[in-house]
Amino acid sequence: MRTANTSHGLWTPTNEVSRSGESVRCGDGSLRFGELRRAVPGISERVLILQLREMETTGLLHREVYHQVPPKVEYSLTEFGHSLNTAMAPLGEWGEEHIERIEAIPWVT
C-alpha cells in the first residue's frame, strides 16, 4: 500500500508502504498496526487509526482480532482492496515518475 498525502491531509493507500527504501507489501499478507505505523513516516497514530477504520468500513481492509495476551490485531486487504490496488497502480507509477515535481509543489495546508 503505497501512501500519498492527499490535499485534505489524509493518507490514502495504493500499493505498498515504504520506508528508507524498504517495502512492506500489504498484498503479501497481514500486517500489524505497529508495522504499518513504522512504515508510514510522518503519519500520526490517530490518523492511521481513522484511515484503517475507514478502509475496514468500506470493505477494503479486513481486521482480524486475536483474543490473546498481549492483544494482537492484523490487517489485510480484502478482494475489494486488491482490486483497488490494480486500479491505483498506474497512478502510483505516474507519481513515482513525477515525484520531484510533486514534492516541489508548495501545498497549502
Results as ranks from 00 to 15, higher is better:
T12F: 10
P13Y: 06
T14V: 02
T14H: 09
E16Y: 08
E16N: 03
V17D: 02
V17P: 04
S18C: 06
S20H: 10
S20I: 05
S20G: 07
E22N: 05
S23I: 03
S23F: 08
S23Q: 06
S23G: 01
R25H: 04
D28N: 05
G29L: 01
G29D: 04
S30K: 02
S30D: 08
R32K: 05
R32N: 05
R32T: 05
R32W: 00
F33W: 03
G34D: 13
G34W: 00
E35A: 06
E35M: 02
L36I: 07
L36K: 04
R37C: 01
A39K: 09
V40Q: 04
V40R: 07
P41M: 11
I43R: 09
I43E: 03
S44T: 15
S44L: 04
S44R: 05
E45C: 07
R46Q: 07
R46G: 04
V47P: 02
V47N: 02
I49M: 03
I49F: 02
L50D: 13
R53E: 10
R53P: 03
R53H: 09
E54I: 07
E54P: 06
E54D: 09
M55V: 03
M55N: 14
E56P: 00
T57F: 08
T57P: 01
G59Q: 14
L61S: 11
L61R: 09
L61V: 07
H62M: 08
H62R: 14
V65C: 09
Y66M: 06
Y66F: 04
H67Y: 07
V69A: 15
P70K: 12
P70W: 03
P70Q: 14
P71F: 03
P71R: 13
K72C: 14
V73M: 12
V73K: 10
E74P: 00
E74G: 06
E74D: 14
E74S: 10
Y75S: 06
E79M: 12
E79V: 11
F80P: 01
G81K: 15
G81F: 08
H82S: 09
H82R: 12
H82M: 12
S83V: 05
S83R: 15
L84Q: 13
L84G: 00
N85Y: 08
N85M: 15
N85F: 11
N85K: 13
T86Y: 14
T86A: 15
A87V: 13
M88V: 09
M88Q: 12
M88R: 15
A89D: 07
A89F: 11
L91E: 09
L91Y: 14
G92F: 14
G92I: 10
W94C: 08
W94A: 10
W94V: 13
W94T: 10
E96A: 10
E96Q: 13
H98Y: 11
E100P: 01
R101H: 15
I102D: 00
E103W: 11
E103D: 02
E103V: 04
E103G: 00
W107R: 15
V108Q: 07
V108W: 05
V108P: 00
T109D: 05
